[in-house]
């Protein structure tokens, strides 16, 4: 009975009765696969199947309304050599990722640190800070944003009161429209904040106390204690937020008229993909775009993981 399950341990502390490699292997693996059964079913039927179908479609002309026709590498060729709009989309998306993710994480971390120390009313503030993240994507948000960043919006009113300057209509100006979407992303910083808060709770308080005794400033404590100990959490947030930012769709879809206006300045990659698939009836090409995006995201994630060993230290290195 004792060998019916092999629990993975740091060392193989459990006795395993061996009688023949293959049968033993099956007996060892069976419970794991039983537990994995729902996920495996979902993976093959709902994820892998449709993903492979889309891989096939990426080599076809498919307008959704009539059956797909084989087109070879045409879609990829077009994407790499001719599609000027795709270039805008890629550059907009990279800009969005490179700005929104660090800003969002910085704000989330900053407020989490203030929240972590403050004693009274933490729950209240935490809830308030999380509220915007609950809103999801809705028509109301789009109206809201266009009001705040419009010509006579709140931002310009504040600007006029404080500096006497008359600001442009931020949301509809090609130089600034993307920034209003970055602002939206930063505004909805609730989830990484919660995760940072959780991480901060894990840092032993006596480390700070000892540092204070030694006369280390708050700034130094942040660099020497908080950041290194928080590295795994930062890494976790960074990877997830980057992936999410690459896939960002709804923000642009609801706020910028669904077309990446003005002048393609908010044409997110996913939005372009959606337009090609459903507005321009090019599902084949859109599938090719989707696969290219997948490769881009995978490359970024791989880089993050590859570099992580230089700056992320886990206390327990077992994986």
């Amino acid at each position: 009975m004792t060998d019916s399950v092999a629990i993975s341990g740091r060392q193989d502390v459990l006795p395993v009765v061996s009688n023949g490699g293959f049968r033993r292997e099956i007996r060892r693996s069976l419970p794991g696969y039983l537990f994995l059964l729902p996920w495996l079913t979902g993976f093959f039927v709902l994820t892998l199947g449709p993903t492979l179908a889309s891989l096939y479609l990426s080599f076809t002309d498919y307008d959704l309304l009539s059956p797909p026709r084989w087109a070879g590498l045409k879609n990829f060729e077009y994407a790499f050599t001719q599609d000027m709009r795709l270039r805008s989309a890629v550059s907009v998306t990279f800009n969005y990722v490179l700005w929104s993710v660090p800003l969002k994480l910085a704000v989330a971390l900053g407020l989490a640190m203030v929240l972590d120390r403050s004693v009274r009313g933490v729950g209240f503030y935490r809830a308030i800070f999380y509220l915007p993240s609950l809103l999801g994507a809705s028509v109301a948000i789009s109206v809201l944003w266009r009001q705040i960043f419009g010509a006579e919006g709140l931002v310009n009113k504040l600007l006029y009161l404080t500096t006497g300057l008359q600001g442009p209509s931020w949301v509809s100006h090609p130089d600034y429209a993307l920034w209003t979407l970055i602002a939206l992303a930063v505004w909805q910083f609730g989830s990484p904040m919660i995760i940072f808060l959780a991480g901060l709770r894990q840092i032993p308080q006596d480390l700070y106390e000892a540092a204070s005794m030694d006369g280390a400033s708050g700034w130094r404590q942040f660099w020497k204690i908080t950041l290194p100990l928080l590295a795994p959490v930062i890494f976790f947030n960074l990877v997830f937020q980057t992936i999410e930012a690459f896939k960002a769709f709804t923000q642009a879809f609801i706020i910028s008229g669904g077309e990446g206006w003005p002048i393609d300045s908010t044409l997110f990659y996913s939005l372009y993909l959606y337009i090609e698939a459903f507005a321009n009836f090019r599902m084949g090409y859109a599938s090719a775009l989707a696969w290219l995006l997948l490769i881009i995201i995978a490359a970024f994630t791989a880089i993050a993981f590859a570099t992580s060993k230089y700056w992320v230290y886990y206390e327990d290195e077992s994986r």
Binding site: A151, S169, W261
Partner: peptide, 8 residues
Amino acid sequence: ADVQAQDS
């Protein structure tokens, strides 16, 4: 232009 572009 920026005012006009507010009309989506």
